[in-house]
């Protein structure tokens, strides 16, 4: 335990903690929309499409986050456009984007001369190597996400609950949906360094799913899910430091265990309640 406290004095650990908290805020807020609107796999599609952006950055010799930003927004836009304006089903669009992004990334990285040392970082994440510049970018992304969600809160709520009725009252639910996908893309960019492409899906869905067990109010859920995300991530981070495990994977493991526990307890509660009702009848 003391070892962990000692670790707090290192800059890279402090930065890791800050990055974890910033990521938890972004995915806590957006995750609530992802879970209630049931677009977890769209989040997966966008994050994998981002791999193409990473490949492009390597190929052009840029900071990977610079390539990621336009790529993620572009893939969100493409997904929204394909599913809303053409006859392609959203499901297929996700599958195509998912594999296409990875394919582009693999080819571009293959074509890049020399070894690409950071590749694993983007697949599985490594929060311990987050540079200060990325922290600033994440702060920026968090601010953009929070401000947008505050400004469009009632539109997002209406669109997520009932897209058709939102159109009936005269608000373009397609545009609102696209805006949500763009925020999702931004959150993905913020998260890639921390948990990696593959584990983003869990980071977006697990804290929000846990919060759902404790609240039926969108705003409260967002606060809960950010806090739950941050606490569980930090526990995961501590464990990964202690046992020398990959940080992203450990964080997800901790979250999954807690999720299963919460779901288990709530199921048992339901059964007990049902049993009590039956007993009352007798």
């Amino acid at each position: 335990m003391l070892e962990i406290l000692d670790a707090l004095q290192y800059t890279f650990i402090q930065r890791a903690i800050l990055a974890t908290i910033l990521t938890s805020i972004a995915c806590g807020v957006i995750g609530v929309y992802v879970v209630t609107k049931k677009i977890v796999f769209i989040a997966g599609g966008i994050s994998h499409a981002c791999f193409g952006g990473i490949g492009l950055s390597f190929y052009l010799g840029l900071n990977p986050l610079i390539g990621l930003l336009p790529f993620s927004i572009l893939s969100a836009g493409a997904l929204g456009f394909l599913s809303k304006k053409t006859k392609v089903s959203e499901d297929s669009a996700i599958g195509i984007l998912w594999s296409l992004g990875v394919a582009i990334g693999v080819i571009l990285i293959y074509l890049t001369p020399g070894y690409a040392p950071d590749l694993m970082t983007y697949l599985f994440g490594n929060i311990l190597t987050v540079p200060a510049s990325d922290i600033w970018l994440m702060i920026g992304i968090d601010i953009v996400i929070l401000v947008t969600v505050v400004l469009f809160f009632k539109e997002f709520l209406s669109m997520c609950f009932d897209e058709e009725y939102t159109r009936v009252v005269g608000v373009s639910s397609d545009k609102i949906y696209l805006l949500l996908l763009c925020l999702l893309a931004l959150a993905t960019v913020a998260m890639i360094k921390v948990v990696g492409i593959i584990l983003i899906i869990a980071m977006l869905s697990i804290p929000a799913s846990i919060s759902r067990k404790f609240s039926h109010n969108m705003k409260t859920m967002m606060v809960y899910s950010s806090v739950i995300g941050a606490v569980l991530s930090l526990i995961g981070l501590a464990l990964s430091y202690q046992f020398d495990l990959p940080s992203g994977a450990t964080i997800i493991l901790v979250m999954s265990v807690v999720y299963l526990f919460v779901v288990g307890v709530s199921e048992i509660q339901k059964r007990v309640q049902r049993k009590n009702v039956e007993v009352d009848f007798e």
């Binding site: 209630t36 400004l151 609950f161």
Partner: peptide, 26 residues
């Protein structure tokens, strides 16, 4: 509808006023 959705009765009814309330306003 997804009746598990985190929305209250009043919030549902208010969505009928979405356009009237206007963008960027509560």
């Amino acid at each position: 509808y997804d009746y598990d959705f985190p929305i209250s009765v009043l919030e549902v009814v208010l969505t009928g006023r979405l356009k009237r309330a206007g963008l960027f306003h509560r």
